[in-house]
Write a protein that binds this DNA or RNA. Structure first.
Lengths: 219, 219
DNA sequence: AACGGTCAATCAATCGATCGGTTGGCGCGG
DNA sequence: CCGCGCCAACCGATCGATTGATTGACCGTT
């Protein structure tokens, strides 16, 4: 019954609740229901678990990002699709996204560099879309780096307050954020019809299935 | 030479770099230049240091928030002033704000409740301004909770990428974010003349003076 | 002599990781 | 069908190191 996936799920749940440094491997074992020594039979170690979770999350965003960009050449459509993808990832996998965001500093130098390389690749998609939108006059952007950071932080923040089964459905959250994003870049709303329907986001292996016990994390 | 302020500064620097749980009191002592035992002569303990830093940061925001609201009855002016204050706090005290944001989960139940009470008080100011702006038609807001969270996360994120002495000055950052905020709520830009000049934010006692060594934290 | 300040030494507890050893089920030769 | 060997799965015990916190002694100043 216990497997690597179960371990990753338990790790994400505990890392999100107590932080990576604040979680012991004995806590991890207890959460999975096995001895801490058995963890090393499946996973190479504590940091290896964290790296695997982060890499899978970021690779999911990267793969989705490439799908998002290829659908249309219009920067507005591309931006909305990027935002809808990102928001969906954060809303469907809030704990995984939360840990991926906030525990980078816990990694050793080599692993941190690898994770940051993935993240930089992903964020450069936003950079390029914003640049082209500004250059072509599709967007009215004052300072591009500030707008890019504000946009990304706004989307990243979803994992801080949203949980599956919340007041809004995932498509509703996507609609709200698509509107907010077009407002930020000074661009008229993009009809949902132009956005395609290939932006569904799957539940990651590392995402705990039951988020009920994490409501206090929404502090 | 060593004092409570020095300890708070060192604590914020280390907590921002390694996290609260990842920082030992011996690390803290070494950063200040004293023995770990001497820490207990000035500060009551590790968590007491964190609580003091967080409380001072949030109380600064609360006091500033009250100043921001009293200046005008126009929701647009109130919102812009709240955003300018918040952004300035994050830009002038990025490490303190960063730690205050992200280490709430490290607190014991009692301290966490106290800190969250302060934060809820502060965030309710945004809630009320947005409500009134929507009710009076000054703002075009689709879903108010989503807009509020997006706005707050966007502002909170400043401490993740800005450092004093960066490319943009604090007033410039304030201008950009004031514009972004009005765009988010669907409201024409507010002339800076209507915003007053009483929103200067002081450097907190807990903020390390030299941010050069923290550039890798901008990961 | 009394004081605030400082620290080496030490406390029990816990850290991540590894060890040797036990278990149980499966495949295979007879 | 038996019995042997194998190996993934699992655990108790323990490793050296470090955790937050405390103590008692020593210092210079008053």
């Amino acid at each position: 019954m216990s497997s690597l996936i179960e371990i990753h799920r338990a790790a994400v749940r505990l890392f999100a609740r107590q932080g990576y440094a604040g979680t012991g491997i004995r806590d991890l074992g207890k959460e999975v229901g096995i001895n801490s020594a058995t963890l090393y039979h499946y996973a190479g170690g504590k940091e290896e678990i964290l790296v695997a979770v982060m890499a899978r999350c970021l690779e999911g965003l990267l793969a989705g990002g490439r799908r998002a960009l290829g659908h249309s050449a219009d920067p507005a459509v591309q931006l909305v699709r990027l935002v809808r993808l990102h928001v969906a990832m954060e809303a469907v996998n809030p704990l995984t996204a939360y840990v991926t965001d906030r525990e980078v500093r816990a990694l050793s130098a080599a692993n941190r560099a690898a994770v940051l390389a993935l993240r930089d690749d992903y964020e450069s998609m936003f950079q390029q879309v914003l640049e082209r939108g500004k250059r072509t006059g599709r967007f009215q952007i004052d300072d591009l780096p500030t707008t890019r950071m504000a946009l990304l932080e706004m989307c990243n923040g979803v994992s801080n307050w949203y949980r599956p089964g919340g007041r809004l459905s995932v498509p509703e959250i996507q609609d709200r954020f698509a509107d907010l994003a077009t407002r930020l870049v000074g661009c008229p709303p993009v009809p949902p019809a132009e956005c395609g329907t290939d932006l569904a986001v799957a539940v990651l292996d590392s995402e705990p299935l039951d988020h009920r016990a994490d409501e206090e994390a929404l502090a």
